[in-house]
């Protein structure tokens, strides 16, 4: 069933390794957003954890949606998606592969963002940062699930690049709330156990939209 998953993921990673386009775009956009946040809200103060969490998720959402568009549009421009459609690879598998690649890119950018966050907001390396990682990963899984599905749609519609955030952000709000609240709590020193409700919500969100994306992908990927 998941035949072709490995080759597609490896191919996309190899392409990215050669050009580095997506990584550069994601990282630069995220960094800029973080800079703005620090300048506007200030790096210190009592609400440092909250502002840092907010900056993290803000950077994630916008860099993530931009990055997804690039990754999927590139395939479309060379028409290679047609080759995949005419192959034994099932649409669901293509979705799973694209989703995984998107997650890897976002995680990559996320690691960079976390480092910058530590620098800008004077956070400490330690348990708080480690606890942040699972929350972050759950968040980007949900975002990648939505983006992979909807970037395929927005890529085929004119003005699509602007349209993707408009479609994805409202849908992502539950995960945004859960993720940012959990992140803020964890960054201010609370243990992961205290935010278990948010984590459960994130998990439910992820399961729901990865499954929905997998099942619905064939409807958006087929040609006319």
């Amino acid at each position: 069933m998941l035949e072709g998953f490995g080759p597609i993921v490896r191919k996309d990673l190899r392409l990215e390794l050669r050009s580095g386009e997506s990584t550069v775009a994601l990282l630069s956009l995220s960094t800029l957003i973080l800079v703005v946040m620090v300048l506007v809200f200030g790096p210190g103060g009592a609400r440092r954890a909250e502002v840092a969490a907010g900056a993290l998720w803000l950077a994630l959402i916008f860099a993530g949606t931009m990055g997804s568009t690039r990754a999927l549009v590139a395939e479309r421009e060379t028409g290679c998606i047609r080759a995949l459609l005419l192959s034994p690879v099932e649409p669901g598998t293509i979705y799973a592969a694209k989703l995984s690649v998107a997650m890897i890119f976002m995680a990559e950018a996320g690691a960079g963002v976390l480092l910058i966050l530590v620098l800008f907001f004077n956070l400490e390396f330690g348990r708080a940062l480690l606890s942040l990682i699972p929350v972050f990963l759950l968040g980007i899984l949900g975002l990648a699930a939505l983006c992979t599905l909807l970037a395929t749609v927005s890529g085929r519609v004119r003005g699509g690049a602007m349209l993707l955030p408009v479609l994805v952000v409202p849908l992502f709000i539950p995960a945004l709330i859960a993720g940012s609240k959990a992140s803020a709590a964890v960054l201010s020193g609370q243990p992961l156990g205290s935010v278990i409700t948010w984590i459960k919500l994130l998990c439910a969100f992820d399961v729901l939209f990865v499954a929905a994306g997998y099942l619905l992908f064939e409807h958006v990927i087929l040609e006319d």
Partner: peptide, 29 residues
Amino acid sequence: FRRIGVLLHQTLLYPNLSARENLEFYSRI
């Protein structure tokens, strides 16, 4: 779908992969 071979107006090749890598990828697929 293995039984269908198609050449379209677009080459369906990945521009940044080598000739060999392209054929290897499609062979695997």
